[in-house]
Design a protein around this nucleic acid. Structure first.
Lengths: 216, 216, 216, 216
DNA sequence: CACTAATCGAGACGGTACGTCGCGTCTTGTG
DNA sequence: CACAAGACGCGACGTACCGTCTCGATTAGTG
């Protein structure tokens, strides 16, 4: 995943249009030298390394290119700007791949809390998150990319909560939106203030508060 | 508060500290031309205006200086860097001045939620917050400034919760830290994702969830 | 002359030096986007204009860049500092291109006096000279550039004087070094104290004094 | 010499006017705290030291004040600007105090050459000269100060040469102006290109060339 | 002996230029 | 086409020095 097409569909703003001979439906594999597939991985790996080493603020395109053994132009051919690259490096597409809901409501909520915490407390993610949040407020494209990625998760939780309401496990008026924001917000604050306190006991306490908070 | 001395105690790195024996005739006190107090206010006001007009990312030291009718050097004499100035401009010391707890636990919690939301949804604060969060991870001084500011609030809520536990209103094991982080995190996420949803109904819902969550 | 390579050989500090084995297929030769040759000429022209308009002391890198339609960074890519640019602008390499010695000793000496005066009394040179002299003592690279430029002239005059000594026109112990310094010094002092007195009669008088001074 | 009054007469531009009670002819020794006479000497000494240590270009008012144990304001009370201070430090008023002409024309000329060389090759003067020359072309006040200082010398040499012409020692049309410029120019060039070559043999050679050059 | 007035230290002031850095784009020659 | 290389315009950075100013604290002479 995380390949050119996926990126293009999320970030491209028209410049990455398929070449004119795409009428036959073959993806733009047309004329010209093909892209070196190693560059993509090398760039993401370099970005991850540098994020941990120097932090988001001191991360530069030239440094990523140098570490990846390529040049700035090759990176700008793949990502519209540095934040896009960082976003993909810190939060790859496969982040949510083995995530699912089950029958036990508390286990499901705990899973979300733990999953969010784990996604945020990765050294790479912890280094990238504050900077990316700042970019989100400036670049709506990035913002939407984040939201659309979590849209399916959001819907799934919404359904799960509705089922729980039907089963009488939670209040009918409980909103998945509120719950999710509380969980993500708690994890985010934890990362910003010091991720060392976000142990499993913390996750259990947060889950219990929220679970009791929406019980009928 | 929010005056020159307070600033010095938070940001200065030793040079501006009053010597411990300053109770006697301290000769150095007030040597040199005193700082023009209007510059400080003008700079903070200019920063607030520009934050709303152009946003954090496009905010420039030169622009703040120009709008304030002074020069970059005068600003660097007062704040180590632009984020420090922005922090003080967006979150002045008197932010928490008329804040207090009462007898009604729900009212107290709601007050915190609403107060945090109001502090974060100010146009100035909303513009500054994402950028400042990114800087916090770079500038530990700023980070500590934020934490120390909320330290007293934290203690007060801690005491309030302990009283409530004694009165049987909440669980004995309820932690003010968890509660506070949930409340602040919810407001923060709200600001980052779209502050238009943070109405009074939202505050009431969040308060109710948390209150029920810690009931015995 | 006065082109990119000559500049490199005079001012560059190793980075731009062609490697000694560059006779074979030197891969690095010409890598990257080539420098825009118009910028070099535009910068020199802008410097010349501004030297006359505002003088050396008020000459700014930003002003030269602005007038040349480029930016400071492009200038710093070509010259280590403003004095280097000014030096090349005021005293280009082709300054001595149509200079030669002949059979008449007095005519030769007069030619040097007049040539030096003309080179120094150009509006551009007159504006640049005092400032450059001050920089010479700070930047030895500039100093050496000046000296090496006159080295060939120096040798030619040395030979000419030796021939004249053989022909019995001048004393055997007459030193071209002394003579040249007297001539250049007289012109320099003239420019510094007021170039309006350096007419052709002045040149004739100076030439006659020096010529008689070294007659046997 | 070199005191306040002399300075005032040379440099002051009206600001240093005597107070209104000076009608009785007493120099402004009126009210107010008198100037600390040690500051003047300390500043000149500090300037001399720093000129040799860091050169003219890196010499700053703050550094001179610091080295002299005083402040910038005290210096600006005595000299209109840094070049004025440097000028007086490098070329004090008593420079020409034991200078005179005699009966031997060659000895007189040699004296001027040697005297100029000695005045220019002092470490302090050699460090200050190029920078001061650059300032001269910008600040006519300084320029005039230099010229007026040498005016008497100039006249004396003029007379001396006229006497020599009457005595048949030199051509009638020989100009002291040309001669003096040649001598000063030679010394100046020598300092700029490397003062180590300006030994006594050099002085003798220069003197002989010029003397022969104006012989009838 | 108080009063006046200039100087002292200290250091902030407005102003201006410096040289550097990073961005995202472009223009070469070479696959 | 992609790629390595590196220059390009743009704009901001944080620093340094200038010469001036405003303090409170001396330090004389004057009334």
């Amino acid at each position: 995943m995380a390949d050119y097409d996926t990126l293009g569909s999320v970030f491209a703003e028209g410049a990455k249009m398929a070449p004119p001979n795409s009428d036959v439906g073959d993806v733009q594999r047309g004329a010209g030298r093909p892209r070196d597939p190693r560059i993509e991985q090398a760039a993401l790996a370099a970005a991850r390394e540098l994020l941990v080493e120097v932090g988001y603020a001191r991360l530069t395109v030239a440094a990523v290119a140098g570490r990846a053994g390529t040049t700035k132009a090759a990176l700008y051919r793949r990502w519209p700007s540095l934040p896009h690259l960082v976003y993909e490096a810190a939060f790859p597409d496969d982040l949510l791949k083995d995530w699912h809901l089950g029958a036990d409501l508390r286990a499901d909520l705990l899973g979300i809390v733990v999953g969010t915490r784990d996604a945020f407390t990765t050294p790479v993610a912890a280094a990238a998150l504050p900077g990316l949040l700042a970019e989100f407020s400036t670049h709506p494209v990035l913002h939407n990319a984040l939201l659309s990625r979590f849209a399916s998760v959001f819907e799934a939780i919404d359904d799960r909560l509705r089922d729980a309401a039907t089963a009488g496990e939670v209040k009918a008026e409980a909103r998945s939106e509120d719950l999710l924001r509380l969980m993500i917000g708690a994890a985010l604050i934890g990362v910003l203030l010091g991720p060392e306190t976000l142990d499993d006991a913390w996750a259990a306490r947060i889950t219990d508060i929220l679970l009791e908070g929406i019980r009928p």
